[in-house]
């Protein structure tokens, strides 16, 4: 039974909160129970940012991840140091290897190294590194239909930014591809 508890973390400006919201929205659109809980405070302004996302078949009791994350998505080194220990044995870690040279030392979790920034850069837009990572996450965990996530993004972009959909879709696919190569 689906019971995803995902920590997404990085620094301000990497689109961490948006990544979490897209997963949450997609989960809701698939009629799952969902919640999104951000860290907030001075760190929101340029420091580290993280959020907890729950996607479940059952109503969400606690929206807080406390050492029971099924996946951690870490977009920078401080996030990896802080949140990899929160993942349960058998869980997944997604590392943005463009910014993190270190390897995850735990062997009871499965780690994917996705060069998000490089892929985004190759596509010509650094801002879509987060979509690369979401593509990898969805590919590996199968927790959501990829189209649900892309539809959630389409909603978020709205009419004015609809032209950005194509490149985001590409980034999402490239992320999935990078993950597939490591499965």
């Amino acid at each position: 039974m689906l019971n995803e508890r995902v920590i997404l973390a990085g620094f301000g400006g990497q689109g961490i909160m948006l990544m979490g919201q897209l997963l949450t929205q997609a989960g809701m659109d698939e009629n799952k129970e969902v919640s999104w809980l951000p860290s907030y405070g001075p760190e929101m302004r340029g420091g580290t940012a993280n959020c907890d996302v729950m996607i479940s078949e059952k109503p969400i009791a606690s929206p807080i991840i406390s050492n029971d994350a099924t996946s951690a998505i870490v977009m920078n080194l401080p996030s990896m140091v802080k949140f990899v220990p929160e993942v349960v044995g058998g869980g997944y870690v997604f590392v943005n290897s463009s910014l993190i040279e270190e390897k995850v030392e735990r062997d009871d979790v499965t780690t994917y190294y996705i060069p998000c920034n490089e892929i985004a850069n190759d596509l010509g837009n650094m801002k879509i590194a987060n979509m690369v990572m979401l593509g990898a996450y969805v590919e590996v965990t199968k927790s959501l239909d990829p189209e649900s996530v892309l539809n959630a993004l389409e909603k978020k972009l709205g009419m004015t930014k609809a032209s950005l959909m194509g490149i985001n879709r590409e980034a999402f696919a490239k992320g999935a591809e990078a993950a597939r190569e490591q499965i």
Binding site: Q21, T24, S35, W36, L37, P38, Y40, P63, I64
Partner: peptide, 10 residues
């Protein structure tokens, strides 16, 4: 509380 204020739910 801060959590209820900040979190998102359907």
């Amino acid at each position: 509380d801060g959590m209820m204020g900040q979190m998102m739910e359907p």
